[in-house]
Structures are given as structure tokens and as C-alpha cells.
Design a protein around this nucleic acid. Structure first.
Lengths: 337, 337
DNA sequence: CTTATTATTTAGATCGTTCTAAATCCGTAA
DNA sequence: TTACGGATTTAGAACGATCTAAATAATAAG
């Protein structure tokens, strides 16, 4: 039943040439004469030959395989990112080894070892929370090309593709201020992650450049339930906000549910803006204004960076930051005087 | 900078034993004496040895790599599925090659060739729409173990893990009938996929067993906009449905938006029920009643099936169908007399 | 103290490819 | 005819592991 694998040698024998020649044909080398190439190619398809990339890698050190590590496969932000990576790699005839670190350092390093063992050509890593800043250095010592993405550790010595949350928050705040909002609150997560820091910092900075005021910061668990429960806290804020900017779309959606439970209609009584613009932003009621971070494009960018690095290992480090754009929908279409 | 790879041979030399012995230690064979094992293990970590699985596979034909092909990486149904697969495989110290066929036959077969070339031990495939029923047979000839999942082609001759949409639809209909609904409509997709057939068939069958009637079937594009636009058609149905069951959650969410635009409040004036219970079901307004299909568990099941198949290639074919469960929320909590 | 057994260890071939360096072919110039 | 240079082709040694079969060491039995 299970038929033996067809090897270069067998093809060579049938075609009446040497193994080396067949190898050249398979790799589309220009060195081989036209009529030989045709003859060999014919045999190749006749025998249903499959190029064994693993064996090739053993000799030439290129597996056409890259590893991707994400901290999460449930959040669609990361899966869209992944989709971008996969698509770009696939165009380049490379293959993606996927792993989910679950934001766990132990798992992350196990995965890296596994990837090393599988001989990946390079890794796209979204570092787990708390990753040792030395990691990029260690990976360089291993000779394992690294592109960091979405998050970053170490001293900017690796390629990086990411989102500009500072700018994103600024867009959102600008939009709200334009509509006359002067008291804007921020619904944050409680976990002390770098993502949180970036967004909060962006918020203070953005607010500082406008006529509006920071109406207060409320912390919630990173879940819609958490956000819904925090609605009361938001409404009780000293600053009595007319608008709330949220850490991400899930919190924003949860907050809208909570606000409504408390008798306030989001989009009419109070503006709500999310960050990320996940597909769900269009499906809430009212449809949610959010800042599109385009994770898919970030993924594609990361893939491009890695491809470039593999081609020219000594190229200067490059950073690629995808510009966010504001998607205005109905959750923020009230104006206040 | 880039340091040479540490090989079994070097470890052997340092430890003062033979290559073969080190190999045994690495693979945790019981054949090696305790004190030798310890000595070698020490050297292993000292030199930071990494087991080259590619080289190993060349000799022993097991790459501890499996391929997963999904038709889509945007729909969270598939990414949750993927998450389940990844998790289970990772526990088993296997690695996942991911590819997205985009429901395109050409891409799907390219991917399969790529996977073959990379020497995967087996494949979990969610076949693209229109896949040749002969494919499983061909794969058997290649000697490539296959588990189909979520969708299926061929004559049930391969392992399969999937969801029971028939039962799922039945649960939903049952729930609606219990609440007094007698006219139930179905919002379907227009594309003639097997998924559509299964759900529609489930619908007719479920309806047939109750006092309720099929109030009509409306077709929409598979997008929330499509569903929103179809709201008018749903309301104009001869049967004047008091409840609508939808092909999936995205359509259901879109429909709710459309209904509201048309002046009907979902959950109060008309019941809406989704299928899949994606995370977004909790975030719509009102929160959506949906049938949980547990894609993550299906993914885990598929992984288990494949692992089993790898272990015992001649075991009888097995099917694993995950039971759906109804998640009752507010979009269906009206009762009609 | 042999010899038989069992427990460990190992040399060397092998997996399927690519690389290196050298061999062969072919048309042309001397 | 002979030699030369470029275009093709190839033999054979890698790559890093595992397998097979056989060697050696250790222990038990006679």
C-alpha cells in the first residue's frame, strides 16, 4: 500500500543521467542543457517525484520553514496577524510552523528549542509577557534569525513589525475632541503589560495636546464581563466623562453592554471607542467606532522583514510600523456642545 | 557570531562514548547504563546540544511534524479549531505546519505537495469546497496519514472529527418551539456548500418533528452586511416568522442589526438564534442565543485521532463527533403564545 | 576458572540531497 | 590535426542522525 519514496537516484537512473544533474533540474539551475532538462522533467512527473526538503536542508542549510510564536490563538488580533504571515510566506513558497506560547515563558522557550531542532530558517516572535531582554541576543548566538512583532524586548537590535498604538489612541482622542467631548475616560486592563503602558501613555499624551481632560482611568479584567461590570465605575467617575476610549474592542463591547444595563445608551448618551477594529466591531449595537490596527498587514510586514533578513543576513535592522486608521461608526456619533 | 551546530559526534567525543550511545541517551532509551546516561546528559546540556529532528527523520522516518490545512484563517471558528489542534499536538511534543487553502483547490494541492516535501508525519485536512473525493485515496497511496475534519469527502474511509450540525439545529429548533414559536425561518448562505446542505437538511428534519412550521428560507451572502440586507426579506416571508435560525453567528449578528434598522427589536419582537457560538455571540445586543459547536474541542479530537493513527496505522477508522450544546441568551428569550 | 547469559556499547552502513572538484563534450581557432 | 575554452555532466564526499549486527563487559552458573 504505502509505496516507497521516489528518490533523485531513481529518477536519474530512469532518465539516464546522474543524480547531480537531476538535482540541478529540480532546483531549476541554468547550468543544465535544455534537452536534458526536458527529458528529466518528464521523468520527474512520470514518477511523481517529491523533493525532500528535509534532506536538502541537511546539506545546504535552508529548510524553507519559518516558525511563528504567538501568545494566543483565540484573540482574533493574533489570528489575523498569523493569517498575514502565512499568506506572505506561502507566496514565497515557505512553510509556517505555528506555536502558541499562551504568554508562558516556559512554553515559549520549549517552543524555541523545538523550532531549533526542526531547523527553521528563522522565527517571527511575539514575545510572551516577561520575556528576558537577552533573548534576541541568545538567538543571534544560536544563529537563528529573529523578527519581533507586535511586542518587543531587548534594545531594538532586531527587525520589528508592529502597530502604532500611540498614534491610534491619538486618532481616537482627536475624533472625540472634534465632536466636542471634553471629558474623556479610558477603560484599561488591570494586568501590567507593555500593551497597557503604551496605550495609557498614548492616552495621556494625546489628551495633553487638546482642550479635553482626562476624566479618569478605570481598570477591568480583560474580558467582556469585566468591562461590563466596570460600567458603573466609569459612570461614577469624578470627571463625568461624555466619552470612553477602551483598551480594545472586547472591552469596548463589554462596556457598551454594561452601560446599557445601567440605563445609558452607548452612542446616544455616551460615546464609546474601541481599539483594534476586530470584525466584531461591526456587529455590536450600535456598530462600534474603533481604530483599525490592521494586524494582517503587520503579519505580512513581519514576513517580509524575515524574508529580507534571510536573503541578506547582514542588512541593517529595520522597523516597520503600520499606520492605524480610524473607523468611524455609530458608537461615537453623538456630539456634545 | 553564528556558531556551528553541535552534533552527536562532538558530544560523543567529549563524553568519551560513541555516537550511537549518545543517540540512545537523547532518545531516552532504557538500554543505556545509568552512570553513562548521567555523564552524557551533563555534556548534552554543557554543549547546548539540539537534537536535529530533520536529520533523524531522514533515517527513521518520523518528523514529529504534522500539517494542518484550513480553508480560512479569519473566521474564528477555524482559528479556534486550529488552537485545539495546536494545543494537543504541542502536548505530544509535535509541531504543527499551518496552511490556509482559502478554499481554493489549486492551493490546497500545492500545500499538500509542500507538506509531502517537508516530510510531515500526517495531515489534518478540512477539505476545500469541491475537493476530489479521490483525494483520501491518493493520500493513502502516498503513504500520508490523513484525518479529515469539519468537512469530509470520499467514502468515510478516513478518520474524521467534526461537529454535529444536524443535532445542533435540532437543539435550536427545540428551544424555539418550547417557547411557543410555531413559524420559524432559516437564514442561509447562498453558496452551495456542504455546510449549507447539512444545516438546511437538519432544519427541515427538526421542524418536521415538532408542531412548528418552516416559515421560509432566505438566502444571504456570507457576511454581516448580506445578512443585514436580508432582514427585509425575512420580515416579508409568507410565514411571518416569530423566530429566525441563522446559518452562523455572523449572519445572526448581521440580521439583528438589519432587523433593528427595520424597526424590529431582536429578542423582543422576534427571536434570533445563531449557530457556532463564537465569542462574538456574547457581545451582540442583545447577547445572542447560539449553539456551541466547540471547534476547539473538535480540533483537539482531530489531533488525537491523528496521533492514534500514527501510532497504529492499521487501527480501524474512527469518527469523533463533538456534541453541540445550546447557549441560551437574550436574543431568543421572548415567548409567543 | 570456564562458559553461558545478559547488559551495554559500538563500528559502519544508510537515509536523500547538495556540494566540490574534476571529467567530458563540442565547436572553433591555430 | 591538435589544442583551447566554455558548456554540461558527474563521481564521491559531505550533512547529522539512526539502524543493524556484532563486539565487549559484567554477572551468574557449573
Amino acid at each position: 500500500m504505502k509505496q516507497r519514496k521516489v528518490t533523485l537516484g531513481e529518477v536519474a537512473q530512469v532518465a539516464g543521467v546522474s543524480r547531480a544533474t537531476v538535482s540541478l533540474v529540480v532546483r531549476k539551475s541554468p547550468l543544465v542543457a535544455d534537452h536534458t532538462r526536458q527529458k528529466v522533467e518528464q521523468v520527474l512527473v512520470d514518477l511523481d517525484y517529491v523533493h525532500d526538503i528535509g534532506a536538502a536542508r541537511l546539506r545546504n542549510n535552508s529548510s524553507r520553514t519559518i516558525g511563528v510564536i504567538v501568545p494566543n490563538l483565540v484573540n482574533s488580533f493574533f489570528t489575523e496577524f498569523l493569517s498575514g504571515v502565512e499568506q506572505m510566506m506561502s507566496e514565497d513558497d515557505r512553510v509556517v510552523l505555528l506555536a502558541n506560547s499562551d504568554d508562558d515563558l516556559t512554553r515559549q522557550s520549549q517552543i524555541l528549542q523545538r523550532f531549533r531542532g526542526h531547523g527553521v530558517d528563522g522565527v517571527i516572535l511575539c514575545p510572551a509577557e516577561g520575556t528576558d531582554p537577552q533573548l534576541p541576543l541568545r538567538m543571534r548566538q544560536w544563529g537563528l534569525p529573529l523578527v519581533q512583532s507586535l511586542r518587543e524586548v531587548g534594545d531594538n537590535a532586531t527587525d520589528y513589525a508592529g502597530a502604532d498604538y500611540i498614534k491610534g489612541v491619538q486618532l481616537a482622542v482627536g475624533h472625540l475632541v472634534e465632536h466636542g467631548h471634553r471629558q474623556i475616560a479610558f477603560l484599561s486592563v488591570s494586568a501590567r503589560t507593555s500593551a497597557r503602558v503604551e496605550r495609557l501613555e498614548g492616552f495621556s499624551r494625546a489628551i495633553a495636546g487638546t482642550k479635553a481632560q482626562n476624566a479618569g482611568i478605570v481598570e477591568a479584567e480583560l474580558s467582556w464581563e469585566g468591562a461590563a461590570q466596570s460600567a458603573a465605575k466609569v459612570l461614577a467617575l469624578q470627571g463625568t466623562p461624555s466619552a470612553v476610549l477602551c483598551f480594545n474592542d472586547v472591552l469596548a463591547a463589554g462596556l457598551m453592554l454594561g452601560l446599557r444595563r445601567a440605563g445609558r445608551e452607548p452612542g446616544r448618551d455616551i460615546a464609546v471607542v474601541g481599539l483594534d477594529d476586530l470584525p466584531l466591531a461591526e456587529l455590536t449595537f450600535p456598530p462600534m467606532t474603533s481604530v483599525a490596527m490592521c494586524p494582517e498587514r503587520i503579519g505580512a510586514a513581519a514576513a517580509r522583514l524575515l524574508a529580507r533578513r534571510l536573503q541578506s543576513p547582514d542588512a541593517p535592522v529595520e522597523r516597520s510600523v503600520v499606520a492605524p486608521s480610524l473607523m468611524i461608526r455609530e458608537s461615537s456619533n453623538l456630539s456634545v456642545s
